[in-house]
Write a protein that binds this DNA or RNA. Structure first.
Lengths: 264, 264
DNA sequence: CAGTGGTCTAGACCACATG
DNA sequence: ATGTGGTCTAGACCACTGG
């Protein structure tokens, strides 16, 4: 075995990692080695033997530690990235995700409100704001022509600085002539609605569908491409039932649990 | 290249597959080869060059066709299995999924009703029916002791014979003393409810969360272990608001889109 | 520059399903 | 017995990051 951990977590965690790695494997036919390594890593991470946010030793070192080839080691690591426990950064290392828990998102709450339930510091970053041709769905929803304009807002939500949700919202331009100015003032869509005379609105429909992150989505969310994600599309309507917002967002699958409660 | 397709799709499709495979690749730095192969396969499948349900040529043959190693070929194939377009069967071959489209499941409809919208033949298979200790969630929901009993029903839903949804339902035993007998008569939970004097019920809460299929889930759904899935937990209540059913189901991520509409 | 993760190869053995 | 997909290896080169 290699005997030098090349710049990584603390000694204590590493020695326990080494102990776990040294344990004999079950027969390959019972459970593939890479899954057994996956299990041991899960154990190590969940028990915080390596602290959240800490860097793991390099792949070659780990492969050596677990007595397998680098390919096999990578397979176990890759699966954990799919589930969100680990995140690799090219040229840097593999890190334990600092917030592996899941967030409850309730359909009867505002976004920030429902995140706040879980504690932590929620911030929002505007990635892009401008006017575009509408998506087909939005055009139909708003009842506008395909070459009309919509106001388009790309936003990233972060928890304690770590990105967890990216969304693209579309609004009918005719209804919000001063959208950009208003939004730049407050940074809040709710305020824009209010300044346009919309005091109350409701979510008329929410759709959930699974998928694998595209390259651009993966980039802003700081996950690997093709990681499983949840796409959520939502439609907000004003009190009269007219659609005022079409929203399509994307979460890493592992970091969110969606709750749809029926008021009764 | 190998020149014999060892027992597979029709000749026409194969020759077109070969043509596509022979096209030059973009630079590896632009897009990894395995992703480029993945793209071409997606194209071939979506255009039904190989028919739904058909068997693909073997991995070694394909690897040869695409001019890459088997490992690289496998990587492209594996990703398509994650997305549900392909499904491998050990010792048999890799098949194009016959129903790659997604099903809309609406929260304001009964399950079968909402599947029927899409056409196709829905069948239901009872995997297990008996009494057990409740899950912690169900115990709390029903307000019973952890060592009380619940009626537990495992069911598999199939569309045109292909499994697409597996669920585990729990019911409070005290409320349905004749559950087993009634269910065996009609095979319908709704009928059991009715015979217990419950004419109307509603879904009070639905939760959606993503995950990777366990071994047992993968087995009944005929997918590979660790394929991304959607877990849906639902609570049904009678008219008075008392919980009468706790349901936890599992879909292959790629085969379902969940719609939550608010009546207005 | 050195270290990291990402990609790719050629070859091997295994368990499984089918004829 | 044969062909299939599933696992594993040793070694190589690349692109990216950071000091």
């Amino acid at each position: 075995m290699a005997d030098v951990p090349p710049g990584s977590a603390d000694q204590e965690g590493l020695s326990e990692l080494a102990t776990l790695a040294a344990a004999p494997y079950e027969a390959r036919s019972v459970r593939p080695i890479w899954l057994q390594i996956y299990d041991r890593l899960a154990d190590v991470i969940r028990r915080e033997v390596v602290a959240p946010g800490a860097k793991l030793p390099g792949e070659v070192y780990l492969a050596d530690l677990f007595g397998v080839s680098r390919i096999t080691m990578r397979r176990a690591l890759a699966l954990h990235q799919n589930e969100g426990l680990l995140q690799a950064r090219k040229g840097v290392g593999i890190f334990v995700r600092s917030r592996p828990r899941r967030f409850l998102i309730r359909n009867d709450m505002q976004f920030a409100e429902s995140l706040a339930v879980d504690g932590g510091d929620i911030t929002s970053r505007t990635l892009w704001l401008g006017r575009q041709k509408p998506s087909p769905e939005a055009a139909e929803l708003f009842g506008i022509a395909p070459d009309d304009e919509v106001i388009c807002l790309h936003r990233l939500r972060q928890l304690d600085g770590a990105p967890i949700y990216v969304s693209r919202k579309e609004f009918p331009a005719a209804r919000f002539p001063e959208f950009e100015a208003r939004y730049r003032q407050s940074g809040s869509v709710r305020d824009v609605f209010q300044s346009a005379g919309i005091d109350s609105f409701y979510r008329s429909e929410t759709r959930v569908l699974g998928g694998l992150a595209s390259r651009s989505e993966a980039e802003v969310l700081e996950i690997s491409p093709k990681t499983p994600v949840q796409y959520v599309t939502a439609i907000n309507c004003d009190a009269s039932g007219a659609a005022i917002e079409f929203n399509r967002g994307c979460w890493p699958m592992a970091s969110v649990e969606l709750v749809f409660a029926v008021p009764h």
